[in-house]
Structure formats: structure tokens, C-alpha cells
Amino acid sequence: MHSEQHEELLSLAAVGVRLVGEDSLEYERLLAEPCPTCAALLPELRFAASSLGIRAPSRSPSAALKDSIVTAIRSDRRPATRSPARSAGFAPWAFAAAAAALFAIVLIDDARLRRQREELRARSADLAQRVERDRSELARRDLVTRVMESDDVRLLFLGGHGPQPEARAKVFWSDKGKRGVLVAGNLQPLPPDRQYQLWVFADGKPIDAGVFDVDPSGRTLFESKDLASIRTAENFAVTVEPRGGVPQPTGPIVLIGTPS
């Protein structure tokens, strides 16, 4: 249902006002509602808000800036679109390689046996990895279940912020368990040297709660580190940091919650 209050919240968000307290929660609820009018209004209000940028007088950039940008772009090798499939040229080479391999195996039996051994070894290593992955996944799910079923579990909403206004997340937090589970979506993929880092605010200070990556659709399910040292979590935020994380936040905040 669309109302004046909804227009107010959407206007605040569109102009870039940091929503806090009840407004933040209300905005999260609004975004979760099936409201086609709101969904259409928000981008239009953002477009209108961008017109305010015209109020800043233009400035001539330094001569080096353009060169610096163009050089960076020309050295950026990341493809913007998917590479076309290469199956057309692959088959003849594959057949030729297979034929050559078969020929070699027939001629040199010792080489065949060696290769079989290597294959078995590789398969065995692969199976061991899978078992390990399954074991970790099981442990992870067990932890998530324990956190979510804790009798003191709290649910906090994190809204998109700064460069990623569309990002969304929830944190299930247990003060007793000293752990939280973050469920996030709409996060942008990051360059290989960057990771998202979760911060828990305790006594007004951010505490590292671990780093995580997102899947190609921008989603993640991530459990925080064991934060035995903190008494209670006041708020949460996610920043973009160098891979491996940093002791104190340095990068842009992309998700932030509502202080309790």
C-alpha cells in the first residue's frame, strides 16, 4: 500500500539521507512489501535527486586525470560480456590429442600405467577434498541452526549504503552464543584483491567479525567469527576491504544496520 509516509521514506533514501532507528526498519519493511508504486517511484526520485548535483559548479580536472583514467581502463582486462563458446574449434584438437595419447599408450605401456596412477591419485585427492567440503558445510549448517535456535537470537536488518544502495542483509545474532549469521543479497562482486568484511559494534567500537565473498548473484550466508570478548552487539556493518581483512575498517561501508 502506497502512502505519504512511504513517499517520505523513499524521498529520504533517494536523496541519500542515512536512515537510522525506526526509519531504517520501516524502510526495510517497505522494500520487502510488494508495492509496485514504490518500486517505480524510488528510481524516479533518485533521478530527480541527482539533479541537485548541478548546483555544484563545474571544475576543470588536471591534465593528468584523463590519462590516468584511460591508462587504467586500457589495462583493465576484465571482460564485460561472456566469452563466446569455443566448442566449434575444440573438437578436432580434442580428437587429435586423444588419438595421439592412445597411440602413445599403445606404444609405451609404462607411460599408460603411470598416467593411470596419476589419475587415481588425482581422483583420490578430489574425493578427499569433497569429503572435507561436505564436512565443513555440515559443521556450518549446524552452527547456523544453533545460532538461529538460540533463545536470545535477535534479528537485525542491514540496509544498502554508499556505493551499494541496493544491498540488503539480515543478521541473526545471539549474545549468549557470541556469534551471528549474516544473510545478504544484492551485493556486487568484488575484484579478486578485495573482500567484504563484517563488523560488530560493541561499546561503540567496530570489531572484526570476519571476511566473506559472495556468489555470482551477490548472495552469501556467512557466520561471524567467535566473538567471545564482546558483551553485546550494538550494531553491524559491512565494508569492502583488502582480501583477508583489516583490523579496523578502511573501505566504504556497503551495509549498515540500526543501532539497538
Binding site: 517520505e8 524521498s11 539521507v17 524516479e44 526520485l45 535527486a49
Partner: peptide, 16 residues
Amino acid sequence: KTRIRLGLMKLRERMR
């Protein structure tokens, strides 16, 4: 809040 809403809604109408 009201001023932000009214101002932005007016801008929206003009930019429409």
C-alpha cells in the same frame, strides 16, 4: 522529512 519529500516530489514532477 516533509520538506525533503515535498521538494523531491516537486523536482520529480519537473524532471518527469
